[in-house]
């Protein structure tokens, strides 16, 4: 009997390993398998979206502090990169550390008072700060105003990281994502990971056991803000243009939340899975129904989100568990 169980566990372990290797191989080869620029571009956008959603996941998923203004940090990164070019002719990635520094400062300002509190204060404060940043940028001609700022029109050297093909971006974004996921994995097994999960589970209990909750929530926010800012700089490097809506638009914040929530917030690969579903969905609905400002894309997109939250509030993880339960019932 026990041998049977062990054998089953072994096959499952091997199965998971094979599945993991296959998934990794598919991720590494994706741009080489498709030679269509449209699909390659989608691949790069998936990686970028997975990167920002994974960064959000540190504070929103693991620590359970739901930020709906993460675009604030994304915008800081994007604007720092392109303003560095506009003002000082820097290569876009040179501005990235400036964006990260600014993001860490803003994260401290918004996090210090609100992370001491429970409930929705943190969410609301992050929205307010992001919207504040957007309004300030729109009204400041120095920061590009409502028009936005552009990067180098033609690459001046390799340092500009300006490529025509989306493939190099795919690997750059994927590389940064890999670093972030490695960090997240390490963190989730460390003292900080346990602290954060304790805080998410029951903050009062965690505090009574001596977990310095506000401090660790702030740490999670800082790391998250830094990586989100980096994602913004990478986005600006690829697109070479940012305006108040693409840098600080509230929709972007929500897309990060949705990608993470769909795949499973607080899981390592959840945001990647969510991004891999949502980005193609958006690109295909856009291609099918046309942009053109008719807004049909967002009606479809919104309806799908409503549908998912209505029938599987726990995200894909819930669907998977239900599927397993159903299979077990059928087998047994």
């Amino acid at each position: 009997m026990s041998a049977q169980i062990a054998a089953r566990a072994l096959t499952r372990g091997v199965g998971n390993l094979v599945l993991g290797v296959l998934a990794l191989a598919a991720l590494l080869c994706w741009p080489l398998l498709v030679d269509n620029v449209f699909y390659q571009r989608i691949g790069a956008l998936v990686m970028l979206s997975a990167l920002s959603a994974s960064a959000w996941n540190l504070v929103g998923g693991y620590a359970g502090q739901i930020s709906i203004g993460h675009v604030l940090f994304f915008g800081c990164g994007a604007y720092a990169s392109l303003l560095g070019y506009t003002w000082f002719e820097w290569a876009p990635m040179v501005g990235a550390p400036v964006g990260i520094a600014l993001s860490l400062l803003l994260a401290t300002i918004v996090g210090t008072p609100t992370l001491r509190l429970k409930g929705h204060y943190f969410s609301m404060a992050t929205i307010a700060l992001a919207e504040l940043a957007r309004i300030i940028v729109v009204n400041s001609p120095v920061l590009g105003g409502g028009v936005g700022v552009s990067g180098p029109a033609l690459p001046r050297s390799m340092a500009d990281l300006s490529f025509i093909s989306p493939v190099p971006y795919y690997y750059i974004f994927g590389g940064v994502l890999a670093v972030l996921l490695l960090f997240t994995w390490q963190m989730s097994r460390s003292r900080m990971g346990y602290y954060l999960r304790a805080i998410r589970g029951q903050e009062r209990a965690a505090r009574s056991l001596g977990v310095p909750a506000p401090r660790f929530k702030l740490y999670a926010l800082l790391v998250s803000a830094g990586f989100t800012s980096l994602a913004g700089s990478l986005y600006a490097t690829m697109v070479g243009f940012v305006d108040p809506d693409s840098g600080f638009g509230i929709l972007l914040s929500v897309k990060m939340v949705i990608a993470a929530a769909l795949g499973g917030a607080g899981t390592l690969f959840g945001p990647l899975v969510g991004a891999a579903l949502l980005v193609p969905l958006e690109e295909f609905t856009n291609a099918m129904f046309g942009g053109g400002g008719t807004g049909i894309t967002y009606v479809v997109y919104g309806a799908i989100i409503v549908f998912i939250s209505r029938f599987a509030p726990g995200g894909l993880a819930e669907i998977l568990t239900r599927l397993q339960a159903w299979r077990a019932r059928r087998a047994g």
Binding site: G60, I66, I68, V254, V257, I258, A261, L262, A265, G293, T294, G295, I296, T297, Y298, V299, Y301, G302, A303, I304, I305, V306, F307, I308, S309, R310, P313, G314, G315, E318
Partner: peptide, 24 residues
């Protein structure tokens, strides 16, 4: 009955549908 995230997802999805259906 889901986590708080599901509420954000659901009501925001609804917002998108209402807003862009009106736009259409």
């Amino acid at each position: 009955r889901g986590p708080m995230l599901a509420q954000i997802l659901g009501t925001f999805g609804l917002a998108l549908v209402l807003r862009y259906a009106t736009l259409w």
